[in-house]
Design a protein around this nucleic acid. Structure first.
Lengths: 344, 344
DNA sequence: GTGAAAGCGCTAACAC
DNA sequence: GTGTTAGCGCTTTCAC
């Protein structure tokens, strides 16, 4: 096994003290140029690698960022956001630890605790659909570990948040459906525990209202399981006395499944029923028909959340730094799942 | 900020020594029942959380597992494998750090170095498509950090590997195409730097041979960029003098794109051209037509790789433990993208 | 600019 | 069983 060198080894060889080596390595201003040069050279020569554990223990701070997301699979959004987070983290010298809550509160709590225990410098979290209590986040905050929520936030706890304009996205896509001439709209919502479900629902409702539609008649079916209730939902839509002619799904994945089940039943899209999703997953463009969706700046959410987190983590006066609540814009992408041929 | 208690605090309050507290907390056999009980109670009361940094530094070992994968997004396979890894890690008390190489060797090297520097207990790696040098893995091994390769392996370096039977999967799906009556088969391969590309290619070729086909005529087009060359590939397939009637794509994502482009050109699937993928991504079942694919035990790969890694990490005689080369089975899933209606 | 010394919070001999 | 003593490899006062 290869010998692992320490600052001590460098110090001995250079006949200087450990502290000077330590300072030189960190580019501390009051180490002479020559000393630094010598230290770096020797470090290179020995292939010295700083022991981050020791460094962190001594400095009582780490270069770790903990990320907790509901799930990596199935949701391109999180993968994208993660890329943004990792880009920023890398730039600023942080390492990212990613955990999945699997949409379970208990898992989220466990992961946050484990991360806090690993003395992460900060926490980036997208809440699970079960999360309705925030003690675990408070624990982190009490330990002086900043928390930034991204995409799925809450107003139940005061932390910085970076989300997208779910409300406007839903409002706009619903409006798009109305303007395309669809008359009897349905919405497949997500669990109402999620802020994003609420906002998308509200956007849908308000768009109906603003067009003078009777919202009482609007068909809304709540899919608590974000990926598995589509079949049942389709059955319900089709069994309505006044069948909807368009359905806005709260996620792309839901839309994909809905389309499959509709097609299986011989229903033409968008002629018999239009279907729209939400998220801007690239797969929507590859489907047949291509699916109208609401694009989110996923990568950018990650970037901004990470930047903010690191700012808070490195600030020595978090009090006056305060919290931010950044809401990034969404944009609708109308495609053939909602736009009838020859209709334009 | 909430006070963070240490074993020292517990020791003082209980009037015993730090070491006893440390031992009790780790459930060391030779601490009396009563002492343990008292320690646990006090730990609970103070909401004591072990400082993992200090623990790891002192014990010269960590509870961290580093994972490096090409990309999380776009490939359900990795997300699934990751879940398997995380399940095992959790059971055994490890924390998982996930990094993406973005299919770039340099990034892979950087991530491995960073992970080694964080003193991970072991490394789980799925090689990037650029990886043709293995010094970074050797560095880890030299530091006594075990490495287990999963899915994308190599025979260039001696480490344990958990892969799937890519060869047989490709062989079987090609055979399936032949038995369905397709006569002129094409293969869209991945970059030949990847072991999986090679094996899938070889399986394809050998299946042709075993059916007495002329492999010299077989159309093989190599897509180095795993997700972007599909359009070009389709053009090339269609411009062949003897147009292929079936194409086996080395990945599901490739198949999805190929299907889209074929449809855009008015080609019927599978009547005019059959298309098969590889990976068993759940999305293949939701597409229209449903895509024939080769299922991989993604979750299980993660589980087995993680189990083996932890075994190696915890072994005190790695020499005699040796290496394993586990190859998990694949299974073809014939669907309508290759099975003509009324043909059965 | 550099060094000495103390200590981060824990583990691990070794003694009793 | 339990305590004592040394560290793990680094950072950080505080002198000089």
């Amino acid at each position: 096994m290869a010998k692992v060198y320490t600052i001590h080894d460098i110090a001995i060889r250079l006949n200087i003290s450990k502290s000077t080596v330590s300072r030189a390595l960190r580019n501390h201003p009051d180490v002479s140029k020559d000393t630094k040069a010598a230290v770096f050279e020797m470090a290179e020569k020995l292939n010295y690698q700083k022991n981050i554990l020791a460094s962190n223990l001594a400095s009582k701070s780490t270069n770790l960022i903990g990320v907790v997301i509901p799930e990596i699979a199935r949701q391109h959004f999180f993968a994208q956001a993660l890329s943004g987070i990792q880009k920023v983290a890398k730039e600023k010298g942080y390492i990212v630890m990613v955990c999945q809550s699997n949409e379970e509160l208990q898992e989220e709590i466990n992961q946050v605790r484990a991360l806090v225990n690993s003395r992460v410098a900060g926490l980036l979290i997208s809440l699970s659909k079960e999360t309705d209590t925030f003690g675990h986040l408070q624990e982190a905050l009490d330990r002086d570990i900043p928390v930034v929520l991204f995409d799925r936030g809450t107003d139940q706890i005061e932390v910085s948040q970076v989300t997208v304009d779910d409300y406007k996205g839903a409002f706009d896509i619903t409006n798009h459906l109305i303007h395309e001439g669809y008359d009897n709209l349905a919405h497949l919502s997500g669990p109402m525990s999620l802020s994003i479900s609420q906002k998308r629902y509200q956007g849908f409702i308000d768009a109906l209202k603003s067009s003078g539609k009777n919202t009482a008649e609007a068909i809304v079916y709540q899919c608590d399981n974000l990926s598995l209730d589509a079949c049942e939902a389709v059955d319900r839509l089709l069994s309505q006395k006044k069948k909807p002619d368009a359905v806005f799904c709260m996620s792309d994945y839901m839309a994909i499944q809905v389309i499959k089940h509709l097609k299986d039943r011989g229903i033409k899209i968008p002629e018999d029923m239009a279907v729209a999703g939400f998220a801007g997953d690239p797969i929507t463009e590859l489907m047949d028909p291509q699916i109208s969706t609401v694009e989110q700046p996923a990568y950018d959410i990650g970037v901004q959340a990470a930047k903010r987190l690191i700012m808070e983590a490195e600030s020595d006066d978090r009090e006056t730094l305060g919290f931010i609540n950044r809401v990034l814009p969404t944009a609708i992408i109308p495609r053939s799942s909602t736009v009838k041929k020859h209709s334009n």
